[in-house]
Write a protein that binds this DNA or RNA. Structure first.
Lengths: 231, 231
DNA sequence: GGTTTCGGCTAATTTGGATTAGCCATATTA
DNA sequence: TAATATGGCTAATCCAAATTAGCCGAAACC
C-alpha cells in the first residue's frame, strides 16, 4: 500500500544519481519490485513522480519552518546559553551541521537532485538557493547574532561573519557530494577552519580601530531562537 | 570550414543550459545553421561532440597551467610585490576573479555543464573539483603564502586562510550561476567579505591598527605580471 | 456471496529522436 | 579535366522508452 511512496523514494534516489532525463521509468519500477506499466496505477506519468517529489520537499520545508517557529518562542530567554560557547562547541556545531547535510539520506539525495536540475527552471533554482544558501545563512546569522550580543564573538558585520563560517562548510559539502572519498580530509579541514574562525572572531581586538563604524551597543534584544537541524 | 568548431561551441552552450540528455542533435544543428544529419559529417555521434568538448577543456587547462609555470618560475623573486598589497587591491583581486569566472563565456558555460554532469562519472567529478576547488585554492594559497612571508598578512595556517578567502567567492559564484539577478547583491557582499577578511588577517594583533594599512612606499616596480586569469 | 476497486501483469502502441543511406553540388587535386 | 573528397540535404530506418489496452487475482466493501 505504500507502493506509491516507495516509487517516490526510489525515483528520488535515481534522479539524484543520474538526473531526471537519464532515469527510465522501468528502472524505478524495477527497484520498487514491479513492472513499469504498474507505475501508472500510481502516477499519471514520469513527470508526475518528479512533481510529487518537489511537493514533498516543499511540505517538509514548511514543516521544519513551522517547528522552528514553535520552538523559537521560548528560546529567547536562552540567550544566556550563547554567552559561553567555547571553541569546542563551535566545532561540534559546524561538524554536526556538515555531517547532517552530508549523510541524512533525504537531504543528501534531494540536494544532489537539485544540483543536477537547478538550471531547468526558476523554481528549482530558487529552491536550491533558499534551502542551501539563504536559510542556513539566516538561521546561523541569528545564532551568531546572539553570540555577538552575548559578547562571545565580536564583529562589525554579523552577515559577513556568518558567511565566513558557512561558506567553507558549504564548499566542503559540495566537494564531498562529488568526491565522497574526500570526507575524512574535509572533516579535518572543517575543524581547522572553525578553530581559525574562532580565533579570528573571538579575539577581543580591543576596539575596532580601523575607520569603520561603531555599531557597538548590540541591543540584540531577547531573541527567539529557532530549532536547529534547519541549517 | 570551422563548422566543426561551431558545432562544439553551440553544443557547449546548449549542454550548459539543459544538460547533455535534454539537448537534441537537431537543436545543435539548427543553431549552427545546418540539418541534423550533416552533423555526422563532423562527429561520429552525439557523445563524440561531448567528448570533444571535454578534450578541449583539458587542452585549455594544460595550456593555462603551462603559462603559470613559466611565469611562476620567477615569481618567487617578486615576493617584494606582495609586501604592500592594500585592502583595495585585495578587493580588486577578488572581484576580478569573481567576474572573470562569472562572465567569461567559455568558463561559465563549462562550469555550468560540469555542474549538471558532475555525478555522471568520476572523471567529470574530478575535473570539476580540480578546476573550481583545488586549483584556485592552490594558486591563491601560493599568493597568500607570499603575502604572509612578506608580512602583509598574518596567519598560522595559510591553507585555511585561503579557504576563508575563496569559499565565499565560490559560494557567490554558484549563487549567480543559478540566480543571475543577484549579481549586484553578490558584488556588494563580495566587497564586504574581502574588507572583513583583510581586517581579520592584516590585523597585526597589536600594532597596525590605524585605519588603513601602511601602503606608503608603493614600490609597484616593473613587474612582469603573471598571467592572472587563472584565478 | 457478490461486486467493486485496487494494483499487478503481458502485450501492444506510440513517439521522439539518433543515426544511416544515398544523392548532389562544389571544391580540391593529380 | 577527370577523379576524389567535402559537406550539405532529404528521406528512410531504428530503437529505446514512455505510455496505453486490456486481462486478472485478491482484498475490501455491502
Amino acid at each position: 500500500m505504500d507502493t506509491k511512496h516507495r516509487i517516490m523514494e526510489e525515483a528520488l534516489t535515481l534522479f539524484s544519481e543520474k538526473g531526471y532525463a537519464n532515469v527510465f521509468v522501468a528502472d524505478i519500477a524495477e527497484r520498487v519490485g514491479i513492472k513499469a506499466p504498474s507505475l501508472y496505477k500510481h502516477y499519471k506519468n514520469k513527470q508526475a513522480i518528479f512533481d510529487a517529489i518537489i511537493e514533498e520537499m516543499n511540505r517538509r520545508f514548511l514543516e521544519e519552518a513551522g517547528a522552528l517557529q514553535i520552538n523559537g518562542a521560548d528560546a529567547g530567554a536562552d540567550a544566556e546559553i550563547y554567552k559561553h560557547i567555547p571553541e569546542e562547541q563551535l566545532v561540534t556545531l559546524g561538524t554536526n551541521l556538515f555531517l547532517y547535510f552530508l549523510h541524512d539520506d533525504y537531504t543528501r539525495r534531494f540536494r544532489k537532485m537539485l544540483t543536477i536540475e537547478q538550471f531547468h527552471d526558476k523554481e528549482l533554482a530558487a529552491a536550491y538557493t533558499k534551502q542551501y544558501v539563504d536559510d542556513p545563512l539566516s538561521y546561523q546569522g541569528m545564532l551568531f547574532g546572539l553570540m555577538v550580543s552575548a559578547g562571545v564573538l565580536q564583529t562589525e558585520n554579523v552577515e559577513i561573519m556568518t558567511l565566513h563560517f558557512y561558506a567553507p562548510i558549504y564548499m566542503l559539502l559540495t566537494i564531498c557530494d562529488r568526491n565522497p572519498e574526500r570526507e575524512a580530509e574535509a572533516l579535518k579541514t572543517m575543524e581547522a577552519h572553525i578553530r581559525q574562525f574562532n580565533r579570528l572572531y573571538a579575539r577581543t581586538t580591543k576596539k575596532n580601530h580601523g575607520g569603520k563604524n561603531n555599531e557597538n551597543h548590540s541591543h540584540q534584544r531577547n531573541r527567539k531562537t529557532r530549532r536547529n537541524i534547519q541549517t
